[in-house]
């Protein structure tokens, strides 16, 4: 059975096409402002890559904060449901899923059957999401890709006083003016976001069974800070940012 999962995030749209539980095509594109057209274009491209036609598709399931724009999806699930499904299908022993995207962060606790027991969300404030890192990377004039590696090079602890992304940007600029190393600032930024995610994750509970998914899983410095904060190992799947779309694609049962 060939199914499709479409995850319309605040920053990127991710689409996964599966045959059973096997991914046969995946792709992402910036969300932009014409969501529906953007989704259609990517979908058509992936169908070509997977060498399947629209008639062969059994079910299209949408998820993500912008999922309403995908009006051709037959089904729609929340990000929490899709994230938990995708993450526990990949790693059945995982009982705590942390999903950090551009504008949202969430910690989800699931039981041994993959059923959601509890979850905590931050979706209203940039301080606990990728957007915070993005603003600071811009102030540091470092690409998002290099930001994680840069922060790994530092072993200093410098405090960040500002919590708000807008105020933190000014703080980063003044740290730069006072000749603080970029790598130390990058680490402080990752530590700050990680401490917020840590507190949210403690709320739902975990026992060395954590999986991190979402776009922030590409930030190695953040992963490190999170491991330290939670004092636990963390599984980071390959293609971590596609896990929610994958979860939507295989949700049909």
């Amino acid at each position: 059975m060939i199914n499709v999962g479409i995850d319309v995030g605040a920053k990127n749209i991710k689409i996964v096409i599966v045959n059973g539980q096997e991914i046969i095509a995946k792709g992402k594109v910036l969300s932009g402002f014409e969501t529906k057209e953007t989704v259609m274009a990517l979908y058509d491209q992936l169908l070509g890559e997977a060498n399947v036609t629209k008639d062969q598709i059994n079910l299209i399931t949408s998820t993500g904060s912008g999922r309403k724009a995908v009006d051709f999806a037959q089904k729609s699930v929340t990000e929490v449901t899709a994230a938990a499904k995708g993450a526990t299908t990949l790693y059945p022993n995982v009982h705590c899923v942390i999903d950090v995207g551009a504008e949202e962060g969430r910690s989800i606790r699931v039981d041994s059957n993959g059923k959601i027991v509890d979850f905590a969300l931050n979706e209203k404030c940039a301080a606990g999401a990728g957007a915070f890192i993005e603003s600071m990377a811009r102030a540091l004039e470092v690409s998002i890709e290099d930001f994680g590696m840069l922060s790994l090079q530092s072993d200093r602890e410098i405090p960040m006083n500002a919590q708000c992304a807008v105020f933190a940007e000014s703080e980063v600029v003044s740290l730069l003016h006072s000749k603080t190393d970029k790598k130390d600032i990058a680490k402080a930024v990752n530590d700050a976001v990680a401490s917020r995610i840590t507190s949210m994750t403690r709320k739902v509970g975990f026992e060395n069974d954590i999986e991190l998914i979402g776009g922030m899983a590409k930030n190695t410095g953040f992963i490190n800070a999170l491991k330290k904060g939670l004092d636990s190992e963390i599984i980071v799947p390959e293609n971590a940012e596609y896990v929610t779309a994958f979860g939507a694609a295989i949700y049909n049962d």
Partner: peptide, 13 residues
């Protein structure tokens, strides 16, 4: 004062 949501989290949990 700017992070009591997090400072108080241990007791709230």
């Amino acid at each position: 004062r700017k992070k009591i949501k997090y400072s108080c989290a241990p007791c709230k949990n």
